[in-house]
Design a protein around this nucleic acid. Structure first.
Lengths: 252, 252
DNA sequence: CAGTGGTCTAGACCACGTG
DNA sequence: ACGTGGTCTAGACCACTGC
């Protein structure tokens, strides 16, 4: 069932709004990713094959893939092919892990899960996840340590329907990046996130876990993560000690 | 004196390292920007003219301009031409102003300059600005207010040689974006910045200016800004109250 | 209408990775 | 040697802007 694309104005009239061909191709590729035709780490068909399948020139496919590549959905590898991006790679790690040591390269962190249970979404969480208030959500709490020192205390909320089988046991035995687990075991690939960053005073509980004095300044990072099609799939609230670590960012 | 470019392997051997044609063209355009051949806001020559000047095809120029456009050095406007990006535009403002209100769209801020004087660079500032310790630098201090409430207290260090004529009077009478002033009056266009973000406790002095209690948590944003060719041109240290404002960021 | 960037095509050749 | 993506070209036509 090879998808074909409207080319000339006459047959294009069925489209509600105009979009250039390469964007239509891009959408078709995203749909393929979304429905799992190609999974993270897989190689997608070559540009020539895609061009034949969609009945357009190789140059048009190329432009579509170019955009998907700069959006980090695909990864091009010269001489090998084009692959679906995955969180099981050093490349992808640091795009979403922004809290790093002040004076040396990041080292692998260790997660300890403090909590994992099903709860009902509060109004705020429901709004961020685009579900109804009191719909089921999975609630996680974890402590991230670097060099044996606790640095980040995260609270995470996930849509209950997508993460039915997530258990404390599974988390405890898994050591890779959390988003890697999500994509491999729950078919949910995180591709983008919006964050709001503030400075707050440590509560007694947070202070205890992070081994600092209550009332100490902490960095609060509130994140909403999205998968294909701008669908929200995670709310995260992280508290970080920024004595010897900082949140790095590049403006350009 | 139209610049020509090495095309065939034989004449290309003079180049120390291989770079594709479009990247060489890109560098030539950046050099034009750097030496002020085209100033912020100016229209650069059309793709066809550039192709003739550099003796390459329009498609190659197009790829060079594409990259410069996604790097925000140039702005394409269909039907009009391609223009040098400028900080005197709403578009550019919010790329570098990341502290925004929690629950409504950003409103124009008001700057009050508390200090402006020539000092000698400390070791740390000198290192960031790539000058020698005790070289002259300009030191600014300003309070940024939104809706009549102080929100950000900035300290800024600039290389003395580039900002010789910057005075408190000039700052007081100027109301636009600071980077706009820099590019128009000092020929220094800021194009990129690295930031380190932390939570700190307010000093007595910062607390006084920001009208909060001493010891309150504040967001500290340490920024080093760069112009063409990765040359550092500003060190900034901003303290923000994040009660009703936050630092926004998008990960992708 | 002319001039600009935006899209699309077709084909040649290069650079890289693998067998 | 072959298949992949990467570069470069030439030319056609479209869409937008301003005169």
């Amino acid at each position: 069932m090879s998808s074909s694309v409207a080319k000339d104005p006459e047959s294009a009239t069925q489209a509600a709004v105009y979009a250039p061909l390469y964007r239509q191709i891009k959408d078709l590729i995203v749909q393929g990713l979304q429905r799992g035709e190609w999974k993270p780490g897989d190689m997608i068909p070559s540009e020539i094959d895609l061009a034949a399948r969609f009945q357009v020139s190789q140059g048009t496919v190329r432009k579509a893939v170019d955009e998907l590549s700069t959006e980090n959905l695909l990864v091009r590898r010269q001489g090998k092919g084009t692959f679906v991006a995955t969180h099981h790679e050093a490349r992808a790690q640091f795009r979403f892990l922004r809290v790093v040591p002040d004076d040396h390269a990041p080292l692998p962190g260790v997660s300890r899960y403090l909590d994992c249970r099903r709860v009902r979404a509060s109004g705020e969480i429901a709004r961020h996840l685009s579900v109804r208030p009191s719909d089921p959500v999975v609630y996680l709490r974890r402590l991230l340590s670097f060099e044996n020192a606790p640095v980040v205390l995260d609270e995470i909320w996930l849509p209950g329907n997508l993460f039915k089988k997530l258990t404390a046991e599974r988390l405890a035995e898994y050591t890779g990046p959390l988003y890697g687990l999500f994509e491999t075991e729950f078919g949910t690939r995180m591709i983008r996130a919006d964050e709001r960053i503030r400075a707050v005073a440590a509560t007694a509980d947070a202070a205890k876990h992070l081994k600092i004095a209550a009332g100490s300044p902490l960095l609060l990072v509130e994140r909403v993560s999205y998968t294909y099609g701008e669908r929200p799939v995670e709310v995260r609230r992280g508290l970080s000690v920024t004595e010897r670590y900082h949140y790095r960012n590049t403006l350009s």
